[in-house]
Structure formats: C-alpha cells, structure tokens
C-alpha cells in the first residue's frame, strides 16, 4: 500500500468538477464572456478616441446644451429606463409571471427603439444641418466626426441587435419556450449595452460641450 492513492478522491469544492462554479449555467457564463470581450472591443475604440483626441490640440467642442445635450440626455434617460423595465421583466419571469414578463420585455424593446429613433434624428441633424460626416465637418477636424460616428454607430448597432434579440426572447417567452435564465441572460446583454452608453455619453457628448 503506497502513494498510489495518496490523494483524496473528490474534493468538495465548486471547482472540483461535476459542478458549475459561480453557480451559474453555461449560457449565463457564455454571455458574461461575450460581454468581457465586447467590452474590450469598445475599450479599444475608446482608447483610440482618447489617444487621437489628446493628440489633437483643437478638438472641436460643438455641442450646445440645446439641442444636442438635451437630446442626448433624453436618450440616456430612455435607455436607463429600459434597463429598469428589463429588471422588472427578469423579476416577473423569476416569479413565474409569464405574461407580465412579456409586457416588460416589450416595454424594454420600446425603450430601445425610442433610443434608436432619437439617435437617428440626432445623426440626421448632425449630418444634414451641421454638415458633420465621418470625413469632414465645419470645424476642420475630420476625426471628430470619425470617432463620433464610429463609437455611437457601433453602440447603436448593439442596441438594434439587442432589440431584435429581445424580440426573439419575448416571442419565446410568450410561447412558453424560454426559461427564466434565458430572460436573465438577455437582460445581462441589455444592461451591458446600457453601461457602454454610460461611457460614451460623458466621453463623447459631455466632454464636447461648447463653453
């Protein structure tokens, strides 16, 4: 009898195998991992924006309180509220209120859609009225438009994808196909999109306010 069985058999730890550590299922873990990587993509863009902005002495600060900042604040408000409705949706689902959950998810989608519409209006205003494009603008710092449209555009894409994603979830929940976890996972995505905006809003809008 010797060292051959020196180790004890199955240690009782979440990391001992045969269990999911963090007590979360793979789907949720997968979404978290996606969020981490997506956060890095956004960080890279934000770092690029910061780098270029610091290297440009006369970065334009064209946003007036009205309408740009008011508008952006309204968008922020809409998006934040939609995070709240999402929380309600997840909550309802966790308590087995399927119908109510669908309602909250639809409300969240409405918030997202409103955000997109407001944002599109804002883009239209900038492009048509102010003459800002990705490659030129009245202030002769083309990078202003480039970084603005790249950052907000990527974010808007995320919002649109999120609305579609929530749509799928809403239908699935309505038909009784999806479980509470599925709603929770979609909620994670939605909150992440919201969080990203909370970086973009100050960095892109508030720091470019005309004073």
């Amino acid at each position: 009898m010797a060292e051959a069985r020196s180790e004890t058999l199955v240690p009782a730890s979440a990391w001992g195998g045969g269990a999911s550590p963090f007590a979360m299922n793979s789907k949720k873990l997968g979404m978290w991992l996606f969020i981490i990587s997506d956060a890095l993509t956004f960080s890279a863009l934000l770092v690029a924006y910061t780098y270029l902005r610091l290297a440009t002495p006369n970065w334009p600060t064209p946003f007036h309180f009205s309408p740009s900042i008011l508008f952006a604040s309204l968008m922020t408000f809409v998006l934040l509220s939609s995070s709240l409705t999402m929380v309600m949706g997840v909550h309802a689902m966790n308590h087995g209120h399927r119908r109510r959950a669908v309602g909250w998810i639809l409300a969240t989608m409405a918030g997202g859609a409103a955000f997109v519409i407001l944002h599109a209006t804002e883009w239209r205003h900038l492009i048509v009225d102010e003459g800002v494009t990705p490659f030129s603008n009245p202030w002769n710092e083309p990078l202003f438009g480039a970084t603005f449209f790249a950052l907000t555009g990527l974010h808007m894409t995320h919002v649109i994808v999120g609305v579609l994603y929530l749509g799928v979830i809403a239908i699935g929940v309505g038909r009784g196909k999806f479980k509470p976890e599925d709603v929770e996972v979609s909620g994670l995505y939605w909150h992440f999109v919201d969080l990203v905006w909370m970086f973009i809003f100050p960095l892109v809008y508030l720091m470019s306010v005309h004073i």
């Binding site: 001992g16 195998g17 793979s26 997968g30």
Partner: peptide
C-alpha cells in the same frame, strides 16, 4: 474562446479539479 472557457469551467467531470 467563449466555448472553450465555458466548457473548461462548467463541464469537468466529477473529481476533475
């Protein structure tokens, strides 16, 4: 990458610390 990480964390057999 997401697949590999989730698999390694969640799907180890019992005793595979």
């Amino acid at each position: 990458a997401i697949n590999f990480i989730a698999t390694t964390i969640d799907l180890r057999a019992k005793g595979m610390t």
